[in-house]
Structures are given as structure tokens and as C-alpha cells.
Amino acid sequence: MTPGELNHRERAILRAVADGRGELLAGCEPDLAIDGGWCDRIAVARLIAGGWICAVRPARAGDRVPARITDVARSRLDIAPALTA
């Protein structure tokens, strides 16, 4: 999937994850929450399968783990790394 193939919802999800606001619920079909609210499962599945979003560390099914955009996604979208405290 190229940046031009992303819809507005997927771009908003990527911006939120890049800002450090995303959390994945690990499983065979992971779910993504932004600020505690669950995202569109189809959009999330496309972003994960397309290599745009991943977990910050390995997780077992049922674990919640912070999400991050991949380095490839960051370079394709020209997004600066999130600032950490």
C-alpha cells in the first residue's frame, strides 16, 4: 500500500500512533485503541498488514502494548519521531 492509497481515517490513525496515543491489543487480529477508544478494525488490519503500524515489543495474545508506526511508514509519510519524556 502506498501513501496515496491511504484514506483519511487511516492517515488520522497513523498520526495518532505517531504521537504516541495508540495501544494494540495483541491477538491473531490485533485491535488498536487511540486515547482509549477502539479504532475501525478494517483500517487497523490494513495498516498492520501493510507494514505501517506495529507493537513496540513482542506481546502474547490478550496483552496490551503501545503501538508505533514503522520506520518505513515514518519515512514514506515524512513524520518526525514522537518526543519522549
Rank of each mutant, 00 (worst) to 15 (best):
60 R>S: 13
42 I>F: 11
54 C>Y: 00
72 V>D: 15
56 V>C: 05
38 W>M: 12
34 I>Y: 02
78 D>I: 04
58 P>K: 14
17 V>H: 02
12 A>V: 04
43 A>T: 09
47 L>C: 03
77 L>N: 08
78 D>C: 04
19 D>L: 08
59 A>W: 04
23 E>S: 06
65 V>N: 05
80 A>G: 05
16 A>K: 02
24 L>V: 00
73 A>V: 01
18 A>D: 11
12 A>W: 10
68 R>M: 10
26 A>D: 09
67 A>H: 14
40 D>Y: 02
45 A>E: 15
54 C>F: 00
43 A>D: 14
59 A>I: 00
49 A>G: 11
79 I>D: 10
43 A>R: 13
71 D>Y: 04
16 A>P: 00
60 R>A: 11
42 I>G: 10
20 G>F: 13
69 I>R: 09
51 G>V: 04
34 I>M: 01
24 L>W: 04
33 A>E: 06
21 R>P: 00
17 V>L: 05
82 A>G: 05
81 P>R: 02
38 W>F: 07
57 R>D: 12
61 A>K: 10
63 D>T: 03
48 I>M: 09
63 D>N: 12
52 W>Q: 05
23 E>T: 05
24 L>A: 02
62 G>F: 03
31 D>V: 00
57 R>L: 06
26 A>G: 06
39 C>T: 06
81 P>Y: 00
69 I>M: 12
18 A>P: 03
36 G>M: 07
67 A>V: 08
67 A>G: 14
72 V>I: 10
30 P>V: 01
31 D>Y: 04
58 P>E: 15
80 A>V: 01
37 G>M: 08
78 D>S: 11
10 E>K: 07
30 P>S: 03
52 W>D: 05
22 G>T: 02
53 I>L: 14
74 R>H: 08
11 R>W: 03
35 D>C: 06
68 R>S: 10
76 R>Q: 15
34 I>S: 01
16 A>N: 05
14 L>A: 07
29 E>W: 00
19 D>V: 00
65 V>S: 02
46 R>A: 10
78 D>L: 07
63 D>I: 01
19 D>K: 13
82 A>P: 00
70 T>H: 08
12 A>M: 07
12 A>I: 02
59 A>R: 07
24 L>R: 04
37 G>L: 10
53 I>H: 12
66 P>Q: 11
44 V>N: 15
83 L>E: 13
15 R>M: 14
27 G>Q: 05
68 R>Y: 00
17 V>R: 05
80 A>M: 10
47 L>D: 07
68 R>N: 02
28 C>T: 07
19 D>M: 08
83 L>S: 13
70 T>Q: 12
50 G>W: 11
69 I>Y: 11
18 A>W: 06
11 R>L: 15
50 G>P: 08
58 P>V: 08
75 S>N: 11
55 A>V: 01
76 R>S: 15
28 C>W: 06
60 R>I: 03
47 L>W: 03
26 A>S: 14
32 L>P: 13
32 L>S: 10
64 R>P: 06
15 R>T: 15
29 E>M: 01
62 G>Q: 08
55 A>G: 04
44 V>I: 13
22 G>Q: 05
39 C>S: 14
39 C>R: 15
66 P>M: 09
50 G>C: 09
82 A>D: 03
54 C>E: 15
78 D>T: 07
26 A>V: 06
20 G>A: 09
16 A>H: 02
55 A>Q: 12
73 A>P: 03
27 G>R: 02
53 I>G: 10
